[in-house]
Simulated assay, not measured.
Amino acid sequence: MAAAYSGRGLHGQTVEAMAAMIFGGEFRAGDSLDVTALRERLGVSSTALREAIKVLTAKGLIGARPKLGTYVRPRADWNLLDGDVIRWKSAGRPDPGFLRDLHELRSIVEPPVARLAALRRTPEQLDTLERALDAMASSADPVAADLDFHRALLAAGGNELLIRMEAVIGRDGLAHGSGDDPVPGHLAVLTAIRLADGQAAESAMRELLDKAWRDAVRRRFQ
């Protein structure tokens, strides 16, 4: 289980700063970390740094062993399905392969979830989806509303394990911020769910994700 991490306060700032060093390329896999130098550089206490290291260790980023001391673990050990790791990786140096993998994962998960949602959603869950879509059209923070829609979709699918994919859906940075109107694509998904049309819901979600991927490629790599 990952260490509890709220992202707030000095503790959160220390975790974020160390993660930025790793994902920004300052520290690479296998590099040893000078804990004393890090503590002085970040201006934090030994306790604060130790707690931050615990968080990053739980996420598979940092390890410790005799003679080598504290070090950055190989990428194969990183918990790439952890929401914070996805966020840090997406915010770091452009990595087309990683974003492609995230898009493929979402394409495997979300269209079938939309189909399930069309067949299983409750009236209350449908209301939640509709409120998220309304907020997407009118809110000053459409990105948050977009995330709320996708989280509500996972819940409406009625599969407890798939609901846990929220960490991936909510942090990948692919479907948000393209500058295009997000409402029509989401409305097509919602309409199909409202009509209990599983096939149409699945197709609409696939089209929505494909457009998000094209927008992400244009925005980040062209």
Rank of each mutant, 00 (worst) to 15 (best):
G185E: 04
S46F: 13
A19Y: 12
R164C: 15
V168W: 08
D77V: 04
D215C: 11
R120C: 12
Q222H: 11
A64V: 15
T47I: 10
L42Y: 08
A175E: 01
A29Q: 14
T70S: 09
A20N: 15
A144Y: 10
L161P: 01
I163M: 03
D82T: 12
Y71N: 10
L209T: 02
G185L: 04
M165P: 00
D134L: 14
H176I: 11
D77Y: 02
G60A: 12
D181Q: 10
R164E: 15
A48R: 10
V15M: 00
Q125D: 08
K89T: 05
R120Y: 04
A156R: 06
T47G: 07
R131K: 11
A200G: 04
R115D: 00
L129E: 05
R87T: 04
M21V: 01
R87W: 09
V85T: 11
A137M: 07
P123W: 13
A76S: 14
D101W: 10
I193V: 14
A204H: 00
W88A: 04
G97P: 01
R218L: 08
A155D: 09
R8T: 13
Y71Q: 06
R50N: 15
H150C: 09
N159E: 05
K89V: 03
G158F: 12
L99P: 00
R41T: 02
E130Y: 05
L38W: 01
R120H: 13
R194I: 06
G69I: 13
H186Y: 03
R164N: 15
R131S: 07
A37H: 07
S139M: 05
L153S: 03
G63H: 07
G9Q: 11
A140F: 04
K89E: 01
K54W: 07
L174T: 03
G60L: 12
Q199W: 01
L162F: 07
E166K: 05
G177A: 06
P94R: 06
L102F: 06
G83W: 10
R214N: 11
S90H: 06
L162D: 02
A64D: 12
R8K: 09
F221N: 09
G24K: 10
I108Q: 08
D84C: 10
V189F: 00
R87G: 00
P142L: 09
D127G: 14
W88P: 01
P74E: 06
E202R: 00
D31I: 08
D101I: 08
D84G: 11
L42D: 03
V85Q: 02
V44S: 03
Y5M: 05
R115S: 02
E40T: 05
E26A: 15
D146E: 15
L195C: 07
R75V: 15
R28V: 13
L161V: 11
W213M: 09
E26D: 14
S107G: 08
P142G: 10
Q222K: 05
G198M: 09
V44D: 03
T128Q: 14
P182Y: 07
L10D: 03
D197H: 06
A4K: 08
H103P: 02
R220F: 03
E207W: 00
R206C: 06
V72G: 01
K211V: 11
R65M: 12
Q222N: 10
A48S: 15
A58L: 01
A76I: 12
R41N: 05
W88M: 05
R106L: 14
A29P: 07
L119D: 15
V72Y: 01
A137N: 04
L129R: 04
E207A: 13
V35W: 07
